Amino acid sequence: MTPYLFLCAALVLLVVFTYIPVVNMFWYSVTSWDGLSPSKEFVGFDNYVEIFTRPELFGVLKVSLYYIGASFVQIVLALYFATILSFSTRFRNIFKGVIFFPYLINGVAIGMIFLFFFQPGGTLDSALAAVGLDGAQQQWLGDPAVVNYSLAGTSVWRYLGLNFVLFLGAIQSIPAHLYEAAEIDGANRWDQFRHIILSGIRPVVGLSFILAVAGSLSVFEIPFVMTGGANESETFVIQTVDMAFKYYKVGLASAMAVVLLVIILLVTWLQRRVAPDEKVNLA
């Protein structure tokens, strides 16, 4: 019974803080509850009908495209640094710490840091002025044409360390004799990367893509802290939170959360179907 007793604490926390809230969310989504009234009027699928008949509710999903694009850049950079630092490189432990450190910082703190970084006359504008690029200065968070690029760039810096650690651990698990055999056969570094590294860590790369797309669709803290959703930077989650706590439409907000959950599950399923994990024999 000892292992099960140790598992009980984790299972209780999981049920109380994950599964019960999810069940409640489904229940709220078919009511017109305002979050304050003790009674919850059942309205069936009216909230879902409203979501799909109001284009503005789904229109904010286009903002997620900026974060999806940034996530691909993030994965490429993480894979590059993980590959370089998996081998003998001077000061590689320092570089590992520098890359991973941003992921340890609280997201709200990162949002505040980059809020000062992008503000007019802030760090970025001062750096551009120092190198003679005054003409490149602009309203990084005030211009609707630029703000989402700034926010997506912040997310790259924020989550690069997570993918970097995943890739680094996977690459270091590849047997060293494979590289030696490849060098004997005349394979260059690019060939080794394609046929040994990329093939060996394919399941981890697939996991990173799933996490990246899911995170891009549900991004919240960085745009909420830095812009509050202003200047066409509002995401679906920010809109959902506003619907619940600003307009007191908890039922509709819960339905939006359910729709987002279904979209993420559908995207994940499609990714698994298009690029299924394959067992790679590295022996």
Rank of each mutant, 00 (worst) to 15 (best):
F95A: 11
A78M: 01
L162R: 05
T89C: 05
L166S: 02
R90K: 15
R189Y: 08
A130M: 10
I94K: 05
M112E: 04
A187V: 07
L168A: 06
G135R: 10
E180Q: 12
V98N: 02
A127V: 13
D191H: 14
S150G: 12
T89S: 08
A109R: 03
A130N: 05
R189H: 09
R194T: 12
G186C: 09
D191K: 15
I184S: 08
G153W: 08
E180A: 10
F87Y: 06
L151H: 05
G111K: 04
Y80K: 00
H195M: 11
L141W: 08
N93A: 14
F100P: 03
R158D: 01
I113H: 02
A130G: 06
A182R: 02
M112F: 10
R92A: 08
A152I: 14
Q137L: 05
R189K: 14
K96H: 15
G132P: 08
S88A: 11
F117N: 06
A152G: 07
G153T: 13
Q172W: 03
M112K: 12
G122Q: 07
A129K: 14
F87V: 00
I94N: 06
G135V: 10
T83W: 02
F91Y: 15
F167K: 00
F91K: 14
F164P: 01
E180P: 07
S86Q: 00
I94E: 05
D134T: 14
S86I: 02
T83N: 03
L104C: 08
Y80S: 01
S155I: 14
I99E: 01
K96G: 12
G97Q: 08
A152W: 07
T83Q: 02
A127E: 05
D134H: 12
S86K: 02
Y103A: 12
V147Y: 06
V131G: 08
T123N: 06
S126K: 13
Y149H: 15
F117K: 09
F116S: 14
V131P: 08
E183F: 03
S126T: 15
R194C: 10
F164C: 01
A127Q: 06
D191Y: 12
Y149V: 15
I105E: 02
G135A: 11
G121H: 12
A78Q: 00
R158S: 03
A181V: 12
G107A: 09
V98K: 01
Q139W: 10
G161L: 02
A78E: 00
Y149I: 15
G132W: 05
F95D: 04
A181D: 11
A176R: 12
G121W: 13
A181G: 09
G111D: 01
A109C: 05
P144V: 11
R194M: 09
T123F: 15
Q192R: 14
A170P: 03
Q172K: 11
Q119G: 06
R158V: 05
P120T: 08
E183W: 04
H195D: 14
F95M: 12
F114I: 04
